[in-house]
């Protein structure tokens, strides 16, 4: 364990809100507004951390446990991701499965916390969340399995190590896997073709509606966990899409950070130019991700 392994977790913890700020700034630019400052998400979190809390009389300890477990699980998942040449603090055969399943744990607890309030709106959001995630999960794992086969390594650190051996096969595979991971990124992080993070109509939301009754530090934890989760998926996407390494540590990290910013801008562009899909169409989008991932598997298998 050397110190460079801690670079990525610290960067993620520090910069995840900034990424959301960049997304919002991009959307504002498209809409011709000034928009909130890039650092606004930090201020929001800070303010929430210093507030009291209001709990529904219906709720039990599960509502309070949800945000804590989510944040802890997401931070643990971040520890398995390599980033721009820095190795992950935690790396072992099959860590990609733990990575995916930690988000399953997050989902389980957040959905339970939503149902804990007994509100039909939060139940609705929870129902949609589990529906779409059940389809996103095979896409993510198949894409990672294809990359694992290509890199010949069963761990995230190995398969994102950035070696492009046989470009004729590997670049199409990387693109397909990136497409699958990209769709999963949008679906898992309440982004536009699937969910609208800005809407204030409870009927149309998924993630935001699940935390209607969470307040104060709990809301800060849940919000921060969501931001870190977005960072984790974006970092995964960057790992797939930017397989080149210069060999110089700071240059690699800078390159990866630039790519992260590009992903944030990309999310903003998608959100500005696309409409949210009708809910019955979302499974098709996710199936398209599964198809991309399956195609990647087919390509690497031969």
């Amino acid at each position: 364990m050397d110190a460079t392994q801690l670079i990525h977790p610290l960067l993620a913890l520090a910069l995840a809100p900034l990424m959301a700020g960049i997304v919002n700034k991009t959307k504002s630019a498209f809409a011709g507004r000034n928009g909130p400052p890039v650092l606004q998400p930090y201020r929001d979190l800070w303010r929430l951390l210093h507030k009291g809390a209001v709990y529904s009389r219906t709720t039990s300890w599960i509502l309070r446990a949800g945000p804590i477990v989510s944040l802890a699980a997401v931070v643990t998942a971040l520890a398995m991701l390599p980033f721009g040449g820095t190795a992950a603090p935690l790396s072992f055969a099959g860590d990609l499965i733990v990575f995916a399943y930690l988000f399953g744990l997050v989902r389980f607890l957040m959905v339970a916390a939503a149902l804990d309030t007994g509100s039909s709106f939060e139940g609705m959001g929870a129902s949609r969340e589990v529906t779409f995630s059940a389809l996103a999960e095979p896409a993510l794992l198949l894409a990672l399995a294809a990359l694992a086969r290509m890199a010949g390594s069963p761990s995230l650190s190995g398969l994102l190590a950035g070696a492009v051996a046989n470009p004729a096969v590997s670049i199409p595979v990387l693109l397909l896997a990136a497409a699958a991971v990209g769709i999963v990124l949008l679906a898992e992080n309440a982004r536009i073709p699937v969910d609208d993070p800005n809407t204030h109509l409870e009927l149309t939301m998924i993630h935001e509606v699940m935390i209607l009754d969470t307040s104060g530090p709990d809301l800060a934890f849940a919000g921060y966990a969501a931001l870190l989760k977005q960072w984790a998926f974006a970092a995964l996407l960057v790992g797939v899409l930017v397989p080149w390494r210069t060999g110089v540590l700071w240059a690699d990290v800078a390159l990866a950070l630039a790519a992260m910013a590009a992903v944030a801008v990309g999310i903003g562009v998608v959100e500005s130019t696309m409409a949210r899909l009708r809910l019955v169409r979302v499974p098709q989008l996710l199936l398209a991700a599964v198809a991309c991932a399956a195609l990647a598997v087919v390509l690497v298998l031969r």
Binding site: L49, G52, A53, V54, Y55, R57, T58, S119
Partner: peptide, 14 residues
């Protein structure tokens, strides 16, 4: 964080 701050109960926000 919650020590010394107000923690209140209320109905579910519907």
């Amino acid at each position: 964080l919650l020590a010394g701050r107000s923690v209140t109960q209320s109905g579910t926000w519907d």
